Simulated scan of single mutants.
Amino acid sequence: MPPPRIVLADDHVLVAEGIQQLLASEFDLVGLVGDGRALLDMIQELQPDIALVDISLPLLNGFDAVRQVKKISPNIKIVFLTMHDDKTFVEEAFRVGACGYILKESAISELVFALHEITAGRNYVTPSLAQEPATQAGKASSPQHGLSPDSLTQRQREILQLVAEGRSNKEISQILSIALKTVEFHKTRLMRCLHVQTTAELTKYAIAHGLVTL
């Protein structure tokens, strides 16, 4: 039986290279990307068995990328490999369709063990975070940082992330292939919805919810 085919989405080169070496003996790592939009293209092209995904990916964060991945490839197994140790992030991960959640600080051997568990059809969460997250699937999470990003539309979340990454309105319109006025409209609506008045406050919100990192 051929080894599971895996794609990895992580924008930290050293982390990605380390994982690539770790998995080489037991898994077939068929693709490596550094942002969420590239992940969508790669999964559509390669149709892997498992996707290892960081949450804080550039251009399109891991949660929103996985929401779209599940429409492209509903049977793919999603494993989040992340630095975020907030249990509300674990709940959100399973809510968008993950079957695994592993902290990057965990022992290297844990990742291999977790992938074997997931390949066998079982869910896996780093033990320090485990609190029956799979039972939370489909339930609304209760973020500790105010209004949940789920209250926003997909387009609003995409624009929020790009604003927080420091992209100009013109750059955002090019990345998303939408009109400049549409970007400005959504940005204004975002500020109203989140009750903020500045780009700095939008950025603070995005960081708190794992959409971007400092």
Rank of each mutant, 00 (worst) to 15 (best):
L111T: 05
L111M: 12
V112T: 10
V112M: 01
F113H: 14
F113A: 07
A114K: 01
A114R: 03
A114D: 04
A114E: 04
H116F: 09
H116M: 05
E117I: 02
E117F: 05
T119K: 09
T119H: 11
A120E: 14
G121V: 05
G121K: 08
R122W: 07
R122I: 01
N123L: 00
N123S: 15
N123Y: 14
Y124T: 06
V125S: 06
T126V: 05
T126P: 02
P127W: 11
P127C: 04
P127T: 05
S128D: 13
S128K: 15
L129W: 06
Q131R: 15
Q131E: 13
E132Q: 14
E132I: 10
E132L: 13
P133H: 04
P133K: 02
T135Y: 12
Q136K: 15
A137I: 11
A137Y: 07
A137L: 03
K139I: 10
K139T: 12
A140K: 13
A140C: 03
A140Q: 11
S141H: 05
S141W: 04
P143M: 01
H145T: 13
H145S: 09
H145N: 09
H145F: 13
G146E: 07
G146Y: 08
L147D: 03
L147V: 15
S148V: 04
S148D: 12
S148Q: 02
P149Y: 08
P149K: 03
P149V: 04
D150C: 00
D150T: 10
D150P: 00
S151I: 00
T153Y: 04
Q154M: 09
R155V: 04
R155F: 00
R155L: 13
R157V: 07
R157L: 05
E158L: 07
I159M: 06
I159R: 01
I159G: 01
L160M: 12
L162E: 02
L162K: 04
L162G: 01
L162R: 06
V163Y: 00
A164N: 04
A164K: 02
E165P: 05
E165G: 05
G166R: 07
G166D: 08
G166M: 09
G166F: 10
R167S: 11
R167C: 12
R167T: 01
R167I: 00
S168V: 08
N169C: 11
N169G: 14
N169S: 15
K170V: 14
K170N: 10
E171Y: 01
I172S: 01
S173D: 08
Q174R: 12
I175L: 12
I175C: 01
L176G: 01
I178V: 15
A179E: 13
L180Y: 14
L180K: 09
L180G: 04
L180F: 14
K181Q: 13
K181F: 11
K181V: 13
T182C: 01
T182R: 09
T182S: 12
T182M: 10
T182N: 09
E184M: 10
E184Q: 15
H186V: 01
H186I: 02
K187P: 02
T188Y: 14
T188N: 13
T188L: 13
T188M: 10
R189I: 07
R189D: 11
M191Q: 15
R192V: 05
C193H: 12
C193V: 06
L194D: 04
L194Y: 09
H195V: 10
H195D: 14
V196N: 05
T199A: 06
T199I: 12
A200Q: 15
E201F: 06
L202M: 06
L202Q: 03
L202A: 04
K204I: 06
